[in-house]
Design a protein around this nucleic acid. Structure first.
Lengths: 148, 148
DNA sequence: ATGTATTTGCAACTGTATTGTAAAAAAGAA
DNA sequence: TTCTTTTTTACAATACAGTTGCAAATACAT
């Protein structure tokens, strides 16, 4: 089920970070490296669990996730279960394009619905963001494993 | 913009609560009363701000929101902004039917998209919950006020 | 190599949500 | 009504997620 995504080298990640105006540091490269090898949005806790044992400070991690989100490298979303998740945005290359996610209400698993098309027909008074397609879609329900 | 929803009397609320197996208590009636007069899902904090001055304990409120959610009277959702919101479910009467919500990423305002139809065309491997329409839809973007 | 602004790492802190508990209240039985 | 049992409340204590302040360390432009 893994997507065949282009994994960037450390040097590429460093260049990517610098291109946003941020400085390339160990923690930032580590965060991006960890996130890029995940095939779905990955939670705060998962990143922390992975990187704290390696000596990365919590506050630094939080600050970096926010900074990297602010400059547009990451997206930070809550998929309906009160858990922040981060994903590489990568928009300039069309790699990880905007797409809906399906989150299991039971186990929290996230699935990227890259090939699912969603048609929204908006009525009279709905926000114009809907008519102009400037919105994100999030689906929640039970995944096949938890529904069984 | 207020919806013309049927407001239940205190006696009706008490019966409703008892019908779920829970006991009808002051705090529970107060919570339901407050939630039923809101026209969108309402946050933890909003309910607390409204009812704590009246002497309702925080922990009791939280426990009640969870209990009422567990028995199906309320739905508890996170609309993408890391804020829990509660809404009367009321499914047995078709009052407040399942519908998508639009949440503003800026101001947090929630809009019920009762009249918006959303078509999801699911591909090969997507969760069967999608094919069987057992899912909730959540849209996020900027509301008209914040986009202006 | 040097200087300066950014970033880190640690600790302290804030606010949200949960848990333990004795006392109070609700529902059912007598 | 009054009694009895079980649930619920209210208060306090606690756990946890996330943020902030700041001195020391680091990145990187010169």
């Amino acid at each position: 089920m893994k997507k065949d995504k282009a994994v960037r080298s450390i040097a590429e990640l460093r260049t990517l970070i610098r291109s946003t105006g941020l400085r390339s540091t160990g923690p930032r490269v580590a965060v991006l490296q960890w996130i890029q090898q995940a095939d779905t949005p990955i939670s705060h806790a998962e990143i922390a669990d992975a990187l704290e044992p390696a000596g990365l400070d919590r506050a630094t991690l939080y600050r970096n996730l926010i900074d990297l989100t602010d400059v547009g490298l990451l997206s930070r979303t809550d998929h309906g279960d009160h858990v922040w998740r981060f994903e590489l945005r990568d928009n300039e290359r069309g790699q990880t394009e905007k797409h809906p996610h399906f989150t299991c209400l039971d186990c929290g698993d996230v699935e990227c619905l890259s090939d699912t098309s969603i048609e929204v027909s908006a009525p009279y008074s709905s926000p114009s963001a809907i008519k102009t397609h400037h919105f994100e879609v999030q689906l929640t329900g039970l995944c096949d494993r938890c529904a069984a």
